[in-house]
Design a protein around this nucleic acid. Structure first.
Length: 472
DNA sequence: ATGTAC
C-alpha cells in the first residue's frame, strides 16, 4: 500500500480503481500500522470503493485491522446519491462508547477508602461473558422501551437525574430506533444484559485528573486537577452483536440485486434509502439506545456505591459512542448534504458553537472521551472548528497485538501483580482477560492523542490516570 | 466485541 506523506500527521492513499475516493490516514510515521502484521490500510482502500462515498476513506491514528472496515475508520456516503450503509462500518459492538463521571472529591482524600470503594464497585458491576445485569427484562414491551428510550428511559425509571440527559450524546436516545427490525434472537440475547459491562477491553475505572491542558475548557467540563472520576467503557453486548450478524447476512444476499460489488464480502452494505438499509439503521439505532441505557444503569450503580462508601456525588461529564453510523449534514464541495457518517472506533468531536451541544458546552466544544489501554491513562479532548473527517477523531489506544499474541507474551507473568505494583487496584477480571488487555498489546495512547491533535482533529483538555479498575 | 462456530 503506497502512502504519500502530505504533512507530518497526514498520509494519502492515492485513488486507483476501483476506489472512488482517496484514502487519508491521520498518523505519525511511527503509528502507521506495520503492513506485515496488520492489513488495515488495505481495508481503508477497500472502503473507498463503496457506492456514494464522499471526500475520502479516513483512518484515525489508532487504526488497526477490523471486520471489513478498519477499527479507527470514518466513511461518509451521500444519501441522495446511492450512498450505502454497512454494518461492518459500525462494528459488532454497536454504540460501544464511554461515559465519564466526575466526583466531588480528590485523589488524596479518597486514598484511605479506595480499597472499600473498589470492593463495592466490584460487587455492584455485573460483568464478564454472558452473566448477570442490573435489569432482567422478561417483558418485551419494557425491552422495547429501552430500545426506544435509551438513557432517557433509565432516568424515567429513577436510574439517574434529568441533568444526565443534557450530558449525553443525542440527549440520551437516538431517534428512528425501530425495535420491530430487531430479531427475536437479538432480543433474547439482550433481555438479561441491560446494565452489564461485558468483557474484553470494556471496563469501569476509578481515575484521577493527572494533568489539565486547558483550564477554561476543563472547568466547563467540570474537571480540575486531582479530581476523582469514574470512566465506564461498554457497549450493546449480545444484542448489538446479533443485530450486526443478522444484517451482514441480509445485505450479503441483496447486494448484487442493488448492483453493488465490493472487494471484500465483509463490506456487505445496502443503499441507505433501500428497505434493507433503513431496516439496519432502525435496528442499529435500537442497539445504540440499548448501549446508552446500559451505561446509564452502570453509572447509577456506581453512584450508589460512591455515596455509601465515600459520601461523594458523581456528576456526568459526557457519554459518547465510538461505534455508530449517523445521518448528518456536512458541506461537500461547498454545499450541505445529508451524509451517512460511519464511525467505527472513531469518536464524534463537535467543535465550539455546534448547535447539537448543550447550552453550557456550546462555547467550548464537545467532550471527547478516550479510554487508554488498561493501567496507562485516558484522555479528555474536545472538538475543533474546521477539522477534516466530518468532525471525528480517535477512540483509544488501538491494538497492535492480537488477543492470542497478548496472552502468549504474558505467559509466566502475573498481569494482576503488575497492575498492583503500579498502585492500581483490580476487581473482577479473569487472568486471561487481563493478559489480553495489558498495555503491551496496545499503541501508546499519548502518541495516538498527540497525532490526532497534530492532525487538527481535536484538542487535548485533560489526562486521567487509573486508581482502580473493574473488568470482566 | 461476542452464549470465542450453526
Amino acid at each position: 500500500m503506497e502512502l504519500v506523506e502530505e504533512s507530518p500527521y497526514r498520509f494519502r492513499i492515492d485513488r486507483h480503481d476501483p476506489m472512488r475516493v482517496p484514502g487519508v490516514v491521520f498518523a505519525s510515521r511511527s503509528l502507521l500500522p506495520d503492513a506485515g502484521e496488520d492489513r488495515s490500510l488495505e481495508q481503508v482502500a477497500n472502503v473507498a470503493t463503496l457506492p456514494g462515498i464522499v471526500d475520502a476513506s479516513y483512518a484515525m491514528p489508532d487504526v488497526h485491522w477490523g471486520y471489513g472496515f478498519p477499527i479507527g475508520g470514518v466513511a461518509a456516503t451521500d444519501v441522495a446519491h446511492g450512498g450505502v450503509v454497512s454494518p461492518g462500518g459500525v462494528g459488532f459492538d454497536i454504540s460501544c462508547g464511554v461515559r465519564l463521571l466526575a466526583a466531588d472529591t480528590d485523589r488524596d482524600g479518597l486514598r484511605p477508602r479506595l480499597g472499600a470503594l473498589m470492593d463495592g464497585l466490584g460487587e455492584a458491576t455485573p460483568r464478564g461473558m454472558g452473566r448477570g445485569a442490573v435489569w432482567h427484562l422478561s417483558d418485551r414491551a419494557e425491552l422495547d422501551a429501552v430500545l426506544r428510550g435509551g438513557s432517557r428511559y433509565a432516568v424515567e425509571r429513577g436510574f439517574g437525574v434529568q441533568r444526565d440527559l443534557e450530558r449525553c450524546e443525542d440527549a440520551g436516545a437516538v431517534g428512528d430506533a425501530d425495535p420491530a427490525r430487531v430479531s427475536e434472537r437479538a432480543i433474547e440475547r439482550g433481555a438479561g444484559q441491560v446494565g452489564s459491562l461485558g468483557s474484553g477491553n470494556h471496563f469501569l475505572e476509578v481515575q484521577a485528573v493527572d494533568e489539565v491542558y486547558d483550564d477554561a475548557v476543563a472547568t466547563a467540563f467540570g474537571l480540575r486537577p486531582g479530581q476523582v472520576c469514574v470512566m465506564i467503557h461498554c457497549g450493546s453486548r449480545g444484542l448489538g452483536h446479533q443485530i450486526c450478524t443478522d444484517y451482514v447476512r441480509k445485505m450479503e444476499k441483496v447486494m448484487a440485486r442493488h448492483g453493488i460489488h465490493v472487494p471484500d464480502r465483509q463490506l456487505a452494505c445496502a443503499p441507505v434509502s433501500s428497505a434493507e438499509g433503513r431496516a439496519y439503521l432502525g435496528a442499529m439505532a435500537a442497539a445504540a439506545n440499548y448501549a446508552r441505557a446500559n451505561r446509564q444503569l452502570l453509572a447509577d450503580a456506581a453512584r450508589r456505591v460512591f455515596a455509601r462508601v465515600t459520601g461523594s456525588r458523581l456528576d456526568l461529564v459526557y457519554d459518547i459512542s465510538h461505534n455508530l453510523a449517523k445521518i448528518e449534514t456536512h458541506d461537500v464541495d461547498g454545499a450541505p448534504r445529508a451524509l451517512c457518517v460511519h464511525r467505527k472506533g472513531a469518536t464524534r468531536a463537535l467543535p465550539p458553537g455546534h448547535d447539537e451541544l448543550p447550552d453550557d458546552l456550546r462555547g467550548v466544544g464537545q467532550p471527547v472521551l478516550i479510554p487508554g489501554s488498561m493501567g496507562t491513562g485516558s484522555y479528555v479532548l474536545t472538538g475543533v472548528p474546521g477539522s477534516p473527517a466530518f468532525a471525528s477523531t480517535c477512540h483509544g489506544a488501538g491494538r497492535v497485538q492480537s488477543r492470542r499474541q497478548a496472552v502468549r507474551s504474558e505467559r509466566g507473568l502475573d498481569p494482576r501483580a503488575q497492575l498492583e505494583e503500579q498502585d492500581i487496584a483490580v476487581r473482577g477480571a479473569s487472568r486471561r482477560g487481563l493478559a489480553e488487555e495489558m498495555p503491551a498489546a496496545y499503541k501508546d495512547v499519548s502518541a495516538v492523542v498527540a497525532a490526532a491533535e497534530g492532525a487538527g482533529l481535536c484538542r487535548k483538555v485533560a489526562r486521567l490516570v487509573p486508581l482502580g479498575v473493574v473488568k470482566g
